[in-house]
Simulated assay, not measured.
Amino acid sequence: MPATLVRGGTSKCWLFNVADIHGRAASVDEVLVTAFGSQDRSQIDGIGGATSTTSKAAIVAHSYEPGVDIDYTFAQVGVGAERVEWGSNCGNCATAVGLYALQSGLVRPRGERTRVRMRNTNTGSRVDAVVSTPGGRFTATGDALVPGVASPGVAVGLEFLDPAGAELLPTGSPVDELWFDGRAVPATLIDAGAPAALFDATALGLTGSEELPEFGARLPELLGLRRDAAIRMGVSAPDEPVSHAVPKFGVVGAPRDYTASCGTRVRAGDYDVAVRMASMHAPHPAIGLTSMVAVAAAATVLGSTVRAHTEAADGTIRLGTPAGVVSARLVPDGDRLAGVRLHRSARVIASASIFVPRPDREPVAAR
């Protein structure tokens, strides 16, 4: 089966043309978990990278929706679990899809920057990728750097259009109090980019500037809060298991000096709010782009856990993440949030033929 591996932002995403993956004997879920080697946490017998940020896929197609070039469906493929979650969008993979659309010929370059108009079919949301195309041509390399990636790539501006869900605040309140260890913890439950629960770090005995191992050590005890948030937001029913993908879950705190994972010292004055997010029950090494959108949108809400630290007065919010500082630009339309713009980079790593065993094949050991 043909596929293309693209690094988008701080994730790697395997991209499949819809014609190459649909219509096979096995279901798409079976094809993906087998191709990625999901039954093993190391994904040693597959194309997965054994982390949530490197076990991603998207199925890409030409769109017949007016004003849209590309439809893409995002898949978060299990690591050590034979399942695929289809419940959310992924901004880093959207960045990869934007570059892939030009590399594959689905969209032709137009001018110095080419706008690829995309629709995420998981959520119905609209995302545009503005890809650098110097001289009106696709280029495989570029000089755009993003925190969390050591090497440059092609510059891609990602624009989430009308990012709020049906209700920006599903509970109607800028802050809800959820209970943890006998005390109330303020949280902003917001639906923008993706449903997200943003907890006040101080109330949990955190700062929001923790190094990844320290934050990861606290995550298991905090997952009950995520479940409570999912139920309050209507993402999950009380008697149902909560998706690993949504709601996004993290803590926010006041700026303070910290050391990024690359060893760079980040000063409190360099950013507006500290953020540590989880991805598939593990610390995210930077921050997912849909989580960035959620944090940026929360900065516009009076009384929110994010607004307590910044007003994003000039329309830009700077987030202190484990990988360094990343920025989001808010695009208002009166009282409505019309969009959120992010600066990313992408690189096509490989065009490959993937050999996928039949999912129902009996292992040698069993025979």
Rank of each mutant, 00 (worst) to 15 (best):
M280K: 07
A229C: 12
V301I: 15
V252S: 14
R227I: 01
E221I: 05
T305W: 00
T305I: 04
I287R: 01
I287Y: 07
G315I: 09
G216V: 06
R256G: 14
V295E: 05
M233C: 11
L302N: 01
V235K: 11
T305D: 12
H281W: 00
P283S: 06
R256E: 14
A278F: 02
M292Y: 00
E221V: 10
E210D: 15
M280I: 12
S209C: 15
V266E: 07
L219V: 07
L219K: 02
P238M: 03
G269W: 08
P241H: 02
A245L: 04
I231V: 15
V242M: 10
T300E: 04
S279T: 03
D257V: 14
R267T: 12
D228K: 12
P238A: 09
P220Q: 10
P255Q: 13
D272Y: 00
D272G: 02
L219Y: 00
A299G: 05
A217K: 12
E210F: 06
L289V: 14
M292K: 01
A274F: 12
V306C: 02
R276E: 12
H309N: 12
L225G: 08
A297T: 04
K248W: 09
M292I: 12
G224S: 10
A260Q: 14
Y258L: 13
G303Q: 06
A245T: 11
V293C: 07
S261F: 01
A296P: 03
V293F: 04
T310V: 14
G234S: 14
D257A: 14
M233N: 07
R256S: 15
G253I: 13
E221K: 13
A299C: 06
R267K: 09
A297Q: 13
R265M: 09
E311K: 15
E240A: 08
S209N: 14
T290E: 14
G224K: 00
L219R: 03
T305Q: 03
C262Q: 06
V251N: 09
A254W: 01
V235L: 00
A298N: 09
L212S: 10
T310I: 07
R276I: 10
